[in-house]
Design a protein around this nucleic acid. Structure first.
Lengths: 225, 225
DNA sequence: GTCAAAGCAATTGTATACAATAATACAGGC
DNA sequence: GCCTGTATTATTGTATACAATTGCTTTGAC
């Protein structure tokens, strides 16, 4: 996990920012089960801050759908169901396709260079079985794609979803077979963008997500349907 | 505008909820120009509350991308560019298509009945030129579609975008010609869902958005490209 | 024993007090 | 005159105090 990729909330040096990132991570990583009640004072004491920054973080988490606040009552963890994960992958399959299509026209030289380097490096680390690096490179490849789309809205949305399924993605990429296959798919997307072939880029990015989705199901990481 | 349709924040009876809804509306309706600095005390005094609920509302608005908070400095209105509106319509065209497809399998009887009533009523009000009712019915039709998709994630996302382009949608539907055409398209989507024809439902919902998009451009409501 | 109502404890909602930070203005040296 | 450093002020960041609400417990009538 390490880094917080949400731009709008990247003041990790304020107490509120730290509380927000921390709680977000804990929920996404499954530290809190669904339905658990989060108490402002308890969270505050755990992190060594007062209720004020905790409350502000709560409001943000509520907006993200990670907790549900019942007025005058409490904050409850919502959690991510298997259905949510499945839905997100289907949504991503369509939106990443769109991102790849738009990237054909909007990718900068720097972005293209970083993407090529990314694919090259990923091959190396996959052969060596360096799981942490593979995960980081996969992260970065997708973020690059989002940024290259040239759409603030689309980029923001896809980064959100990307974070949302963080836990399951980690498990998925740990499989050597999927890692290798994923790299090949990244390379194909890169080539399509380089060749300015928008239809191919969209189709390949779409399929890339569908394949990741199928892989999760085949490996029993989430229940089908 | 009237109603706040965001589920996660619907405690309009708390001060924070009121501040949030009010600021959101004001920004979306263009009361504050892009780049304007919002001061916590000033906003608080205007609405008769202290800084605490204002700050919590600010954090939420930041997460929605409506303002940008620079730590220890201030909160600045971000605003919605023409490009943002265009991007959202393209994204919506794809996601509403997906919602319509999923609705084929997940719509409940109650939802179907309300949708039929909605289409029926919309015809009446369009003939009479009742703009406010037309707007509300259009709102509700799309919300129904989102809810009928059976996907919390997709519903949440589309409701967000729907709110986001509120201002421009109001202008669009005010045109009698577009209002009538929009109704026909709603009816066609409804029929496709009723007939369990997923491909048609998706295609029609997709086209519905594209048509709305084209209409905005043709009427000069936003700049093309 | 059961039900209802009142009171109590715990928690959230809001206001305010205090701390830290950043921008501005001003004074002094060159 | 201009640059630099410092003091001042305005604003945000955080902690705490107080108010309001909820849920539970206890008590009492039947």
């Amino acid at each position: 996990m390490e880094e917080d990729v949400k731009e709008g909330t990247s003041d990790k040096y304020s107490l509120r920012g730290r509380v927000f990132s921390r709680l977000r991570e804990d929920i996404l990583n499954g530290k809190y089960d669904e339905g658990v009640e989060l108490r402002e004072i308890a969270i505050g004491e755990e992190l060594g801050v007062s209720r004020t920054p905790v409350r502000e973080a709560f409001r943000q988490l509520e907006l993200e759908g990670l907790i549900k606040i019942i007025p005058n009552k409490g904050a409850y963890v919502v959690g991510i169901s298997d259905k949510d994960v499945r839905d997100i992958y289907i949504l991503r399959s369509r939106l990443e396709g769109l991102a790849a299509r738009w990237a054909v026209d909007h990718i900068t030289e720097e972005q293209m260079e970083e993407m090529e380097e990314n694919v090259y490096l990923a091959k190396f680390h996959t052969e060596k079985g360096h799981n942490e690096q593979i995960f980081e490179l996969d992260n970065r490849f997708h973020e690059l794609l989002y940024e290259a789309s040239g759409s603030k809205i689309l980029e923001h949305q896809l980064k959100d979803y990307h974070q949302y399924v963080l836990r399951i993605r980690k498990k998925t990429l740990a499989s050597a077979k999927r890692g290798t296959q994923s790299n090949l798919e990244h390379e194909a997307i890169l080539e399509a963008i380089k060749n300015k072939n928008a239809d191919d880029a969209e189709r390949l990015a779409h399929e890339h997500m569908i394949n990741a989705y199928k892989n999760m199901i085949d490996n029993g990481l989430i229940k089908p349907e």
